[in-house]
Nucleic acid binder design. Structure first.
Lengths: 220, 220
DNA sequence: GAGAGAAACGGTACTGCGTACCATATACGC
DNA sequence: GCGTATATGGTACGCAGTACCGTTTCTCTC
């Protein structure tokens, strides 16, 4: 029953960490409460921190698989769904995710471990974005900016849900992703889609701006 | 000569890490080469990782001080200068920074440590941004998105310089910051500044776009 | 259901990081 | 010069993580 031992170790660790703190709990104690030897703990988890976190390896693979199927044209949908995969994983965890959040907020090593995991998602997203953006000169920068925006937006929603401040995280995620993906070149769809315009200017003169817009559109 | 001992420890550590790797080098060896005892090492650096990194604590304080002086109106300049403070620090380090980069790329614990430091800058920037953005409903999200974009843009340029791919990192930084700060509400300056327009649309019809722009400008 | 092979487990010993504590030497102020 | 603060060296300890070996338990096959 390797799966059962795994579960017992996680439960024992979470309980002890909540009771007496992460630093004040030795792996020997965790193993003892789980009814196994110290060696067995390290057969299931490479480090003391790993017992707290979900299976990011498997999650990363699923996200990677989703992003790998997409092209430049379908990238936006792939990004939304890939981000959703991660969010859904946490939502399915429920109280476990909240318990972990409480731990990572207070224990520095766990927080650092979390940051390392987040960075792997960043690398994954920016890699695929880079692939879709082709050989334009700012492809690398644009890919990294968009990837970090996606991660930040996702974490913003996730954190809100973990704190109980967001009622519908799925709706919230699509909303914030809209902002995160704003730098991406628009879909190639030439249908009569609603027009979205973003204007940044040092001048407020309408006709000057309109002139610049006309020129930018007509002389590419 | 506390400063001299500090320096000797750093030099000894960097040399040994480069020669035989980070994991294969014990603190005892580092201390021995520096001509001090093992205890003295821990009096200068809290952990083995810290000997590799610059004084982020002091750097964070300087960045914080710069950002603290700014208001919503002067925030953009403060962000640019604060980011510049960090970049200049690395540029001044020269070869030391490149040596550290080589190490952090290959040694996982050092990479994680770096990510933790980066996150502290993220918290600092997003905190001040949040302050400047006031009580608009998306203030927190906008602050986090902008902060992560600034950090990502800075690191993009820094990494390029560390790899020797960027000749003038200062110029590159101002250029990428332009993109990173694009989400921020425009300066209140109403002078005749050059007009910059970014248009994202599903339609390519010029007059439709111009109509939208006119409406967006006139009916806020 | 009995035996062979594989997988999981427990125990011991070791390296090395980080901490606590005590003892010593050197610099500085009066 | 003398007392004090500060930097240092040494020893001992707890605990994470690794390596190795022997034992138990599961599983497949006949």
């Amino acid at each position: 029953m390797v799966a059962a031992t795994h579960r017992r170790l996680v439960d024992a660790a979470m309980a002890l960490f909540a009771e007496q703190g992460f630093d004040s709990t030795s792996i020997e104690e965790v193993a003892a409460r789980a009814g196994v030897g110290r060696t067995t703990f390290f057969r299931h988890f490479p480090t003391k921190e790993d017992v707290v976190f979900p299976d990011h390896q498997g999650l990363l693979q699923r996200v990677d698989a989703r992003l790998a199927t997409a092209t430049a044209a379908t990238g936006r949908t792939a990004l939304e769904e890939a981000t959703s995969i991660v969010l859904e994983h946490y939502l399915a965890e429920g109280e476990t995710a909240r318990q972990r959040y409480r731990l990572t907020r207070t224990v520095a090593p766990l927080r650092h471990r979390e940051l390392a995991s987040v960075h792997r998602y960043f690398r994954l997203f920016s890699g695929h974005l880079r692939r879709w953006l082709g050989d334009r000169p700012d492809a690398a920068l644009l890919a990294e900016l968009t990837a970090s925006s996606i991660i930040t937006a996702h974490n913003h929603v996730l954190r809100g849900w973990l704190r109980g401040e967001v009622e519908d995280p799925r709706v919230a995620l699509t909303a914030v992703l809209e902002q995160a993906l704003s730098r991406l070149p628009g879909e190639t769809a030439t249908e009569a889609a609603p027009v979205t315009v973003v204007v940044t200017t040092g001048s407020r003169d309408v006709e000057t701006i309109l002139g610049e817009v006309r020129r930018a559109l007509l002389e590419p």
